[in-house]
Amino acid sequence: DESNKPILLPNESQSFERSVQLLDQIPSYDTHKIAVLYVGEGQSNSELAILSNEHGSYRYTEFLTGLGRLIELKDCQPDKVYLGGLDVCGEDGQFTYCWHDDIMQAVFHIATLMPTKDVDKHRCDKKRHLGNDFVSIVYNDSGEDFKLGTIKGQFNFVHVIVTPLDYECNLVSLQCRKDMEGLVDTSVAKIVSDRNLPFVARQMALHANMASQVHHSRSNPTDIYPSKWIARLRHIKRLRQRICEEAAYSNPSLPLVHPPSHSKAPAQTPAEPTPGYEVGQRKRLISSVEDFTE
């Protein structure tokens, strides 16, 4: 099969070098950035008060330690540790928490760990991170309901609301924008112990962030949302095809390698009803078989 044979790379090609550099910018793992907010007593309706908090309760602090690993920003190499735009020179604080497994990295933009500057009256330095995160974990210690939209931002799609209760338990629920209701189930609340709260809140936030990324990708319907490693695979396959075309153009005697095509017509299947918005969006999480067989 010609399409699977190794090909020689061009010795000097600026377009090839640019493509390789672009490939280096696509990590081999999925990345997520999640905002974390603490809401104190009497702050449920005040964005400024929430963003001005420099610490929270003892249970909130224990919750943070379970979310991930504490890292010092100045020691991080952005090409190895995903920071979601946090500055490593102290502009966004000294520490944050991050978490990773074999296929993804997540960083938490924690408002109480970011510096509260006197010259920044409206807390814009914090909002440029927190307001651009799709998902926020809100530790609501106010005793009042927290409403979506209290923290203004164009991309605040989903809130994971943590409400501490007695007996070391917590109520965990989801809020989302109306255009996200087909992807996020907000109907079920959970009672979770303090011990298990970081794991549950983190998983709910990661799932909500993946759904938000799919939702946000609708602005470019021709580019369905893939995982990062599938995006790398697609980029490599496009690069291979372009090299083959350039080689055939410079030397017409060489065969032009095309991806294999299936001449056999697909079997006719009964027509199915058109899937609704929710089903269609969830299918976009699934990769096409052509990603692996071309």
Results as ranks from 00 to 15, higher is better:
223 D>L: 07
286 I>K: 13
40 G>S: 03
198 P>F: 00
66 G>V: 01
77 Q>W: 06
224 I>G: 05
16 F>S: 06
191 I>N: 03
62 E>N: 12
220 N>E: 13
279 V>Q: 13
16 F>C: 11
7 I>E: 09
248 A>R: 07
148 L>K: 11
102 D>N: 06
16 F>H: 05
110 I>M: 02
241 Q>N: 12
227 S>M: 14
94 Q>I: 10
84 G>R: 12
121 K>A: 09
179 D>N: 09
248 A>G: 07
251 N>E: 14
164 P>T: 00
85 G>V: 03
101 D>N: 02
147 K>F: 06
211 A>C: 05
48 L>Q: 13
274 T>N: 11
67 L>K: 00
132 N>Q: 15
40 G>L: 00
66 G>E: 03
4 N>F: 12
210 M>P: 00
143 G>W: 02
134 F>E: 01
226 P>W: 02
158 V>T: 02
185 D>E: 05
248 A>M: 12
202 R>P: 01
139 Y>L: 00
10 P>E: 15
208 A>M: 08
23 L>C: 08
104 M>C: 14
194 D>W: 00
69 R>W: 06
102 D>F: 03
235 H>N: 12
32 H>L: 08
219 S>G: 08
107 V>C: 07
286 I>F: 12
71 I>L: 07
283 K>L: 09
220 N>A: 08
54 E>M: 05
270 P>Y: 09
7 I>K: 05
132 N>G: 15
258 H>Q: 14
68 G>C: 05
225 Y>I: 11
22 L>R: 14
118 D>C: 12
94 Q>S: 08
232 R>P: 12
176 C>G: 02
198 P>T: 02
123 R>N: 11
90 G>T: 09
166 D>V: 02
294 E>P: 14
98 C>G: 06
131 G>H: 15
64 L>G: 01
116 T>E: 06
203 Q>W: 04
241 Q>Y: 07
137 I>S: 00
215 H>S: 05
29 Y>F: 09
72 E>F: 08
97 Y>P: 03
102 D>K: 03
78 P>S: 10
157 F>H: 10
245 E>M: 11
189 A>R: 10
168 E>L: 02
198 P>L: 01
103 I>H: 07
16 F>T: 09
61 T>K: 15
83 L>T: 09
138 V>G: 00
5 K>S: 15
144 E>Q: 09
217 S>R: 05
223 D>K: 08
185 D>N: 06
259 P>N: 13
64 L>N: 00
292 F>C: 13
124 C>N: 15
74 K>I: 05
133 D>Y: 07
159 H>T: 11
9 L>K: 07
88 V>P: 15
64 L>Y: 11
9 L>T: 14
212 S>R: 01
202 R>A: 13
169 C>W: 15
91 E>T: 08
285 L>P: 14
24 D>I: 01
285 L>N: 14
53 N>T: 02
137 I>K: 00
268 Q>L: 10
124 C>I: 13
59 R>W: 00
226 P>V: 06
212 S>E: 01
104 M>D: 15
212 S>A: 14
284 R>N: 15
167 Y>T: 05
211 A>K: 02
3 S>C: 12
75 D>M: 14
277 Y>Q: 14
204 M>R: 01
266 P>S: 13
35 A>V: 02
268 Q>G: 11
270 P>T: 12
248 A>H: 08
25 Q>A: 10
101 D>R: 01
250 S>D: 09
203 Q>P: 01
43 Q>E: 02
103 I>D: 15
103 I>Q: 05
51 L>Y: 07
85 G>L: 04
8 L>M: 11
252 P>C: 11
270 P>M: 11
134 F>V: 02
85 G>K: 06
32 H>F: 07
86 L>C: 13
228 K>Q: 07
134 F>M: 07
146 F>K: 00
141 D>Y: 00
127 K>T: 12
254 L>P: 15
80 K>L: 04
275 P>Q: 12
180 M>T: 02
161 I>S: 02
203 Q>R: 01
212 S>K: 01
272 E>R: 11
267 A>P: 08
288 S>P: 14
119 V>A: 11
192 V>K: 00
258 H>Y: 10
142 S>D: 02
139 Y>I: 00
166 D>Y: 01
45 N>R: 11
115 P>F: 03
260 P>W: 10
22 L>H: 12
166 D>L: 03
215 H>N: 05
66 G>C: 02
181 E>N: 06
188 V>F: 10
38 Y>K: 00
107 V>S: 04
232 R>A: 08
85 G>A: 11
227 S>G: 08
145 D>P: 08
58 Y>A: 10
57 S>F: 01
92 D>S: 08
239 L>P: 06
79 D>R: 06
223 D>C: 07
33 K>E: 15
48 L>P: 11
262 H>C: 12
254 L>H: 15
273 P>T: 11
280 G>Q: 09
44 S>G: 08
163 T>V: 06
190 K>N: 14
102 D>E: 15
194 D>H: 01
124 C>Y: 15
161 I>Q: 05
38 Y>L: 00
63 F>T: 00
3 S>G: 14
292 F>M: 15
275 P>D: 12
250 S>Q: 09
254 L>T: 15
39 V>C: 04
94 Q>N: 07
163 T>M: 04
227 S>K: 08
180 M>V: 15
227 S>P: 07
158 V>M: 05
197 L>R: 00
153 G>P: 02
274 T>P: 12
20 V>M: 13
31 T>I: 08
92 D>F: 08
162 V>S: 01
219 S>V: 08
195 R>T: 10
41 E>T: 07
234 R>V: 03
265 A>W: 08
277 Y>T: 13
169 C>A: 06
167 Y>D: 06
34 I>V: 03
35 A>S: 07
126 K>V: 06
153 G>E: 05
232 R>Y: 09
200 V>G: 00
175 Q>L: 06
17 E>L: 11
125 D>R: 15
35 A>M: 04
74 K>T: 12
155 F>V: 06
96 T>E: 09
199 F>E: 03
87 D>L: 01
132 N>V: 04
279 V>I: 09
68 G>M: 04
78 P>R: 10
149 G>H: 08
163 T>C: 06
208 A>C: 12
145 D>I: 05
203 Q>C: 07
104 M>I: 13
185 D>K: 03
17 E>C: 11
41 E>R: 08
235 H>Q: 14
263 S>D: 13
37 L>F: 04
17 E>W: 12
145 D>F: 04
7 I>W: 07
168 E>G: 09
273 P>W: 10
229 W>T: 11
153 G>M: 10
194 D>Y: 00
240 R>C: 10
92 D>C: 05
153 G>Q: 05
216 H>G: 04
77 Q>E: 06
101 D>C: 02
32 H>W: 04
114 M>K: 04
182 G>W: 08
98 C>D: 05
10 P>A: 14
64 L>D: 01
186 T>R: 06
269 T>M: 10
214 V>E: 02
40 G>R: 02
30 D>F: 05
174 L>Y: 10
18 R>F: 04
270 P>Q: 11
294 E>A: 09
272 E>L: 08
26 I>D: 05
174 L>I: 05
19 S>A: 15
204 M>C: 05
165 L>K: 02
161 I>E: 03
103 I>L: 15
282 R>F: 09
200 V>S: 01
201 A>R: 00
